[in-house]
């Protein structure tokens, strides 16, 4: 039997590195598209017609109210019964986008509500249409205010991306679980995979802090330039 260090370098690292790449491929589109979806839904939940608002509120309530695992089961195992088939990767990414979109929309909604009415009035008084006002005045301010919350959601996403293995997408956790089952060395394998996730969330935290600095504007809380 390999020593712990040898097992780590010879078996765990090569295996998990393969999973790591797939995990990154899951996280990146889920984070970006999920955020954009959240901005879109959050905006509709504040500025949409009453009917659209209702629809989006129901969407958010369902996504937030049903466990993500169940949603993934439905996407991957449930939908084929009505003729909709997804690849494991597609099902996972789709599930994560829908989920983080709903959560992001809540942060964005809160930020939108905090924009002073005077900002909208000033835009209307200059001849902006409602859509132009939302697009060029309200959303740019709201996104900055929502960024810390949305960053938090992206950190969550990195961790719940581990659920992708449930729909047979062999990312980090999937690889780890397979290796552990094969070798019965659960402690080492799961300890290592924990470190991999810690690495990912640390990188994400740096990226988000950089982005916040990049977008920071005097008067929008936090340290100004």
């Amino acid at each position: 039997m390999l020593s712990t260090m040898d097992f780590f370098w010879e078996r765990i690292v090569p295996n998990l590195d393969k999973g790591l790449w797939l995990t990154v491929q899951i996280i990146a589109p889920s984070a970006i598209i999920g955020f954009l979806l959240g901005v879109f839904i959050g905006t509709l939940r504040v500025f949409g017609s009453p009917k659209i608002r209702k629809v989006m509120d129901v969407y958010t309530a369902i996504i937030r109210g049903v466990p993500l695992v169940v949603q993934l089961f439905i996407l991957y195992f449930g939908l084929p019964s009505i003729g909709i088939y997804f690849q494991p990767y597609t099902a996972a990414v789709l599930g994560f986008i829908l989920c983080s979109g709903a959560y992001h929309s809540e942060y964005i909604r809160g930020a939108l509500l905090s924009i002073k009415q005077g900002q909208l009035k000033a835009a209307y008084a200059l001849g902006f249409t409602r859509v132009q006002t939302i697009l060029w005045i309200v959303v740019p301010q709201a996104v900055r205010r929502a960024l810390p919350g949305c960053g938090n959601e992206i950190i969550y996403l990195i961790k719940y991306s581990s659920l992708a293995y449930i729909v047979t997408c062999m990312e980090l956790t999937g690889k780890a679980k397979a290796l552990a089952a094969q070798t019965f060395r659960f402690t080492e394998v799961f300890f290592a995979v924990g470190l991999y996730y810690l690495f990912l969330t640390t990188v994400a935290t740096w990226l988000l802090a950089w982005l916040e600095r990049r977008l920071s504007i005097p008067g929008f809380g936090g340290k100004s330039r």
């Binding site: 002073k116 005077g118 900002q119 009035k121 000033a122 835009a123 008084a125 005045i137 740019p140 301010q141 900055r144 504007i217 008067g219 929008f220």
Partner: peptide, 9 residues
Amino acid sequence: FQDFNLFDH
């Protein structure tokens, strides 16, 4: 406006 309402961003 009385309170200016410049676009803060």
